[in-house]
Design a protein around this nucleic acid. Structure first.
Length: 189
DNA sequence: GACAGATGAAGGA
DNA sequence: TCCTTCATCTGTC
């Protein structure tokens, strides 16, 4: 077991993404997209991957990092992230992703998330199938844990991972949101 | 090291 | 079917 959360670097830039679902908040480090926070139904932003964290106010443009001082590389990544997010929310295939910063995450988690990235719109896998795909067929519960720790939901499509027999399983940001995302991809449970 | 967890499978009613 | 129990593996504290 590798445990290297200590060298996790704090994101350098936070940028909001306005969608029909609300304002998502993307966190970028010098390595790429590090986190994506869901908007809450009440307008607050729910941090991804840590369900018991306190929701917080969305960063208004005037409070977010000053656009004038953001390196163009971050702006390029943000354009790619915005496009990818909007495509997923529309149930369409993602054309391109920015580099993803999984620094500090374990090898196991990264292999689970890489497996999720292989799934296109309308495609699903069970936790057991993901466990098999990464060569650890008995690590089904651990796959669930890795899904819950996913810092970049929607873009890394943890909502496409179902429990056995097409049951919905769980979702750190709420089962309703998972059902909604699946419905947009015409996935019937 | 102990414990919890977004599972899965098997067995019994 | 539905429910309960248990095996299994990994992450977190």
């Amino acid at each position: 077991m590798s445990r290297n959360t200590a060298d996790r670097k704090a994101p350098l830039v936070e940028l909001p993404i306005a969608t029909s679902d609300g304002i998502f908040l993307a966190h970028y480090s010098e390595r790429g997209l590090a986190e994506l926070d869901f908007p809450n139904t009440d307008g607050l932003i729910a941090p991804a991957g840590h369900g018991n964290a306190e929701p917080r106010k969305p960063a208004h443009p005037e409070h977010a990092t000053d656009p004038q001082r953001i390196p163009t590389q971050f702006l390029r990544w943000h354009r790619t992230t915005t496009e990818a997010l909007k495509r997923v929310l529309a149930g369409r295939a993602v054309k391109a992703l920015p580099p993803l910063d999984w620094t500090g995450k374990t090898e196991f988690q990264q292999s689970v998330w890489r497996e999720m990235l292989k799934l296109g719109p309308g495609q699903t896998k069970s936790y057991g199938e993901v466990a098999k795909a990464i060569g650890k067929p008995k690590a089904v519960r651990a796959v669930g844990g890795a899904c819950g720790a996913n810092p970049i939901p929607v873009v890394v499509p943890c909502h496409r991972i179902l429990a056995a027999h097409q049951k919905i399983g769980g979702f750190s940001s709420g089962l309703d949101r998972k059902r909604d995302l699946l419905a947009r991809e015409r996935i019937n449970l």
